[in-house]
Design a protein around this nucleic acid. Sequence first.
DNA 1: GATTAACATGCGCATATACTCATATAGTTG
DNA 2: CAACTATATGAGTATATGCGCATGTTAATC
Lengths: 110, 110
Amino acid sequence: MAKQAPLTDEALEHVARRFAVLAEPMRLRLLQTLFDGEMNVNALVEATGGTQANVSRHLQTLTQAHMLSRRKEGLQVFYAISDPSIFKLCELVCGSLEKTFAKQAGSFGR
Amino acid sequence: MAKQAPLTDEALEHVARRFAVLAEPMRLRLLQTLFDGEMNVNALVEATGGTQANVSRHLQTLTQAHMLSRRKEGLQVFYAISDPSIFKLCELVCGSLEKTFAKQAGSFGR
DNA sequence: GATTAACATGCGCATATACTCATATAGTTG
DNA sequence: CAACTATATGAGTATATGCGCATGTTAATC
């Protein structure tokens, strides 16, 4: 654990943007679905229950954030998680949320 | 590492909300400032350069998300990081961003 | 109890973004 | 080249949220 140097304003904005990408339930669901491995858009549409247009947009956002990789094969496009830190991030947040919920003892709802 | 069970829609929304709280540069700056330990609002206002009203609002958001603790002492209110996972979260994202920037070789700016 | 200090909050505005619908693009097959 | 499939994208709308300004609230001091 090295001592943290304060981040510049620009760095903070980049970090914030990265968190913002993860701040949408649909994108999290897509990531979660991709935990099992590469998938094409249609499969993701069916797995998540979203519309094709919306899923496509979120996949674009995730790809631009360098969290997903994009591989074209004929008519289909396959997406896969390209940033392993995503797994740990989700684990961390889930673990932290479990503790919070444990404290609140099931009485969550804002 | 246990196998990940798929999260419910409700759980996904909670995770998303948590990420959303971290998706603002000003809130990240506040957290970063609080890495050194407890501080009162005035000190945070000076350290971050924000307005008092804005800092207060962000502190409220962070507290409601159970990331900060709030301690009142006379006229002053002291805030401190109450969720240790925040440190690891920031480390993870920063590390991941460094890799991304290394690939882009400094040519970031959308 | 009036004044002052530290912090919180109501309100309005501006901006960002998620969603839907329709349409465009790329690639395959007849 | 026409028809079809898989995916992407432009336009419009609705909602969320960050910010500034002003004001409210709580607590200490005179």
